[in-house]
Write a protein that binds this DNA or RNA. Structure first.
Lengths: 173, 173
DNA sequence: GCCTCAGTTCAAAATTTATTGAAACATCAG
DNA sequence: CTGATGTTTCAATAAATTTTGAACTGAGGC
């Protein structure tokens, strides 16, 4: 009902006060939140990305916080996550203090980076364990059916690891 | 330290008491739990699947509960989830009371079913919203860059929906 | 029909995960 | 160097998710 009381207009640097998300922005945010949810990415991160995605120019920290109405901590962590996964870029205008953010040109590439960071470590770290499980089963003379299953799992894992660098080239490739 | 006091041997139907998971079984369970985590599938569900996956024959409800040491509720819900996603099959021996479960032959197909059930609904339900967001942006004469982004998103969404039934054929296809 | 066994449901409890905000830190202008 | 601005850190809190277990349902067997 009442916007946070815009009173005392004059003061230099009265905190800017941003408008809440518009319906069309909310709609897009919902979409990203949903999709992000599938990969276990937190709501706040998806919201930040969505906001940058519908915005005309790059936005700075305070804009993001203000428009989304979330805490500084969340914005900071969210931007870190998006940066780490190469989903956003900073546009630093010379002479300007603050960084301003915009989405990476390719959403597809962003998703790949994201998947990569989730799946690859799991595959890598599983490799020796899976091999041990298979060897174990063979030694104990387990049922052929089980051996077959475990072999297939191992083959998959290996192939996925071989293919990974081709399909999902790491940053410097 | 003390195993749950196996005393009073003789009683008919002393509850069977199952052994806890062996190291090699734990290792495989860890793998499945990790992978499942990426898709937001609960630990207990992954554990059930892993147990069936390393086991020689189909297992019944009590076995699963006993070996994993989890509650009846979890087993029931876990089996429901796996059933719903066509990741396990019941082998009902004639004349037997209880159902016994084993993994579906193809893990790949299982994963596809799982993904399908998560991604497709999101894409479908997003369709009209995304179109509205784009139309909205066009009407308001948003920056070409933003329009371009939103168009691409719409195209992706549509194409994904067209392709979905081909790549991920629903049960009866 | 009544009893037992198999399994399901669902509200409450436990656990995990995300968010907040105050304090610490960093960087730059002066 | 100093003060102000901009950002990060992280312990505490809030929120969301998963697990539990006791009550319930249903399907046979007798």
């Amino acid at each position: 009902m009442k916007p946070p009381s815009e009173k005392s207009a004059g003061r230099r640097k009265s905190r800017p006060s941003f408008e809440p998300l518009q319906p069309h922005e909310i709609e897009l945010a919902d979409f990203f939140v949903r999709m992000a949810g599938i990969l276990g990415v937190p709501r706040s991160v998806a919201e930040i990305y969505a906001l940058l995605y519908v915005s005309s120019g790059p936005l700075d920290f305070d804009h993001i916080q203000g428009r989304l109405g979330i805490s500084k901590g969340s914005v900071s962590q969210g931007l870190k996550f998006l940066r780490d996964h190469e989903m956003i870029l900073s546009v630093k205008e010379k002479g300007a203090r603050r960084e301003r953010w915009q989405p990476t040109p390719s959403l597809a590439a962003s998703l790949v980076t994201l998947l990569r960071s989730q799946v690859l470590p799991a595959l890598e770290q599983a490799q020796p364990g899976l091999q041990r499980v298979l060897a174990d089963a063979q030694e104990r003379g387990a049922q052929p059916e089980v051996i077959e299953r475990l072999s297939r799992l191992n083959r998959w894992n290996s192939r996925a690891l071989e293919l990974a660098p081709l399909l999902l080239p790491p940053p410097g490739a």
